[in-house]
Amino acid sequence: MIVAIVVAVGAAIAVLAVAALRQRPETEQPVAIVSVPAPQAQSADCRILIDALPDRLGDYRRATPADPAPPGAAAWRASPDGEAIILRCGLDRPAEFVLGSPLQVVDEVSWFQVAEAGADEDPGAGTGRSTWFAVDRPVYVALTLPAGSGSTPIQEISRLIAKSLPAKAVDPAPVR
């Protein structure tokens, strides 16, 4: 009887072990990052920032960008198929950033928010994503956040930018 119990328990353990080995972990799809003009993406300032980026931003983990990945870009995801946080370094000054544009200061970094297309006319038409540009550093850094990402990612990136890149005077375009 004891032998039968040992064999039954051993068989159950073997079945569970085989089932566990056959389960595949969730595979992460690479993040497609749209290429945009970033003439300073390969500058020393962007390399310093990109090399210092953390593996985590709050609940978001660093994700692999899909090939071909644009230089000066990085991504984080909260889940393998979730929307990504995208950071781009070395971009041109945003066309909407003009004298008198409102700025938000987060941990010593001045950020300018670019309105999402369609959000001005119909606030319900947007995706909830927001893109913020750090505008007081030697290079422009854009951070695109998915809806519901909270303030932690921009706070952590702000602290990193403040440590990695020297501050400079804000230089908006003149109003036309």
Rank of each mutant, 00 (worst) to 15 (best):
R22Q: 03
D81V: 12
G118K: 08
V9Q: 08
D51L: 04
G82L: 13
I48L: 15
A73S: 13
A134W: 03
G72P: 02
E28S: 09
W132G: 00
A115W: 00
V141G: 00
V15G: 06
P39M: 11
S79W: 10
T64W: 00
A52C: 11
D120G: 14
A52S: 14
V106I: 15
D45L: 07
D120K: 14
Q23K: 13
A75D: 08
E83K: 04
S79I: 02
R77H: 05
P39A: 08
V36G: 13
V139T: 05
I85E: 00
L91T: 11
A66S: 02
D55P: 04
L99S: 11
S101I: 10
A69M: 07
L16S: 12
P71Q: 12
A41D: 05
D120A: 15
R129Y: 15
S110E: 07
V135L: 09
G126I: 06
S79K: 10
G118N: 11
I50S: 00
Q42W: 03
E116D: 14
P146S: 03
G128P: 04
A75K: 04
I13C: 12
A11R: 00
A41W: 06
A52M: 10
V114H: 13
V106Q: 06
D107R: 01
R62W: 03
R22V: 00
A119C: 04
V36H: 02
R93L: 05
C89W: 01
Q23G: 03
A95C: 09
I85G: 05
Q104D: 13
W76T: 06
L145C: 08
G148V: 01
W132V: 01
T27N: 05
G82N: 07
P70Q: 01
D67V: 09
E96Q: 13
S130F: 08
T144W: 10
A125C: 11
G82E: 05
I154H: 04
G124A: 15
L143V: 14
P70L: 08
A75T: 08
V106L: 14
P80R: 08
E121M: 10
D92K: 09
W76C: 09
